[in-house]
Design a protein around this nucleic acid. Structure first.
Lengths: 314, 314
DNA sequence: CTGAAAGCGCTTACAG
DNA sequence: CTGAAAGCGCTTACAG
């Protein structure tokens, strides 16, 4: 029994004894059985991380950095894909709960009421990623999607553009927050026109960016800039512009969002917003680990900001 | 006890009894505890899937389809990233073994001796993905990387190209098999020149494709086609060609490998090899599940083939 | 085909 | 700070 405590690093064990126990464990190659531990303590060494998609690099980078931190502390990461659907997220949470995860990392704040209730009922430590929230009891790490979109929109205004379109796919909550950032900024500048919003619920992709650009550019010169809500859409737009022989940014300026690695190499290089997804994953995992150790986190809401990256396309 | 057997679907239980037990379980919302089950049976309901990378879409698609199948049978998927390093793969297998996974899905056949020994010692059902193998005892699902590269090389020869360069990053075993396919085909055609091999151990990326094309094209007209070993390299090459004002395929023909979604939309659209990664994940998971049920799989080696996709870049 | 016994390897809660 | 007892919720192996 004392050995069990010594190995887990519980406080009330003699330091010398701890040393001897660890030495002995080392020698015989003792490793605790996670299943027995989970059964007795009613808590496993798994952390479930649910992301909307793995085909968006954004979430892959988020995941890799979170997993690196969690693994360092002996936790296994269970990855789930929600496909941007709160109902699917709810179902995944329900399945994961059977395995009594130690903690939960979720994307966004648009959980169903049932999801929130399960998390609360089980008293499961949970950190919400990618957005900021005002809810005092929720632990979140992210940045203001609205402010980021507003910053890009202001940049386009400063470049002299007035007819600025907003083009978005997927239409998840974060996209809609960005739409609101675009809207407020243009209303304030006195050149808002809601007819310049292009939305498509399909997943974001290069192919969709091609199609969107073809439609929007048909309105030229009514539109002189397009703010695409993910870099892959903007990549497609740049390809379509080249084929249609429309100069960028001379004919139409094009901006993206996220700063994917390719965006520095497109023709012309893409102006976009760099989002701190790797750091979001890292800090969210650290915050979760702190809570699992029973520490009260120093902050409940962490805003990691964003960075405007101006290249040649605007 | 009988209820336990009925729920697990063991044979020797009266059919009527099974029905009543299931009905009762349904009514009270009974769900077996995975931790207790794992402790008693010494086998969990986890399947570990180890892939080289998550930033290559190839493996994301593989993973998503494998996870869909496994989840359907009540297995949780533990995803690990090896970064193309057999030593890291060995460490991951070691860590996962503590959790007594029910099965293992691995990429490639380049495991360390220690990894192979652990799998054999624990008698752990394992399926190897992405390559074909002649080892009769190993269960694998994939296709011939060598044949796929040979088919593309033959296509370039048929298009009239004779100075065909081979450009590759990462240099993992599958890349080297493709190199061998390129080599054999050109030797046979009497126009092999080993100096036309460009290799870079860095991860494959658009940025690297840009740099490689800049270097190789400096040799023009010594090279009249380049076979890139991943589509992202070829995407970078197309961007670099446009900037350098080199016509594709007129000046240099460019081919890729994998057929990523963007490849249909590049300028010009990319000629490439479509690889069946989603089906590899699906069939590998099905084969594993069959083994977990104790069934003898109909086949041990599954060759899913590939498809040459000829577009405008060659 | 069905059931009573024992035990998987830990941790919790209770004494000292 | 240390330890003996009980139990987490299942399955295995043995009887009937």
């Amino acid at each position: 029994m004392t050995a069990s405590r010594a190995l887990r690093g519980e406080r009330r064990v003699d330091a010398e004894l701890v040393r001897r126990v660890q030495e002995a464990a080392q020698k015989i190659g003792y490793v605790p059985d996670p299943a027995a531990r989970a059964l007795a303590s009613r808590r496993s060494s798994h952390v479930a991380v649910l992301v909307p998609s793995l085909t968006n690099r954004l979430f892959v980078e988020l995941l890799e950095s979170a997993q690196r931190v969690l693994r360092g502390d002996g936790f296994q990461t269970l990855i789930g894909v929600t496909h941007y659907d709160p109902a699917e997220e709810e179902q995944l949470v329900r399945e994961h709960l059977l395995h009594r995860p130690a903690g939960l990392l979720l994307c966004g704040l648009a959980q169903t009421a049932a999801t929130r209730r399960m998390v609360a009922d089980q008293d499961l430590p949970c950190v919400y990623m990618m957005e900021t929230t005002a809810e005092p009891q929720a632990c979140s790490v992210g940045f203001s999607q609205l402010d980021a979109a507003a910053a890009m929109t202001r940049h386009l205004l400063e470049r002299g553009h007035r007819r600025i379109a907003f083009a978005a796919a997927q239409l998840d909550p974060r996209t809609l927050q960005r739409l609101e950032g675009w809207r407020r900024t243009l209303v304030e500048a006195g050149c808002h026109d809601e007819r310049l919003v292009w939305r498509d619920p399909a997943p974001s992709s290069v192919a969709l960016g091609v199609r969107m650009f073809e439609q929007i550019s048909a309105l030229r010169p009514a539109v002189d800039a397009i703010f695409f809500n993910n870099d892959d859409l903007a990549h497609g737009a740049l390809l379509a512009a080249a084929r249609l022989d429309i100069a960028v940014p001379g004919g139409i300026a094009i901006a993206g969002f996220n700063d994917l690695p390719e965006s520095a190499y497109t023709a012309p290089p893409l102006t976009t917003v760099r989002t701190p997804r790797a750091e979001v994953g890292l800090r969210a995992a650290e915050l979760l680990l702190a809570r699992l150790r029973g520490e009260a986190p120093a902050v409940m809401q962490l805003d990691l900001g964003f960075e405007l990256v101006v290249r040649g396309s605007t």
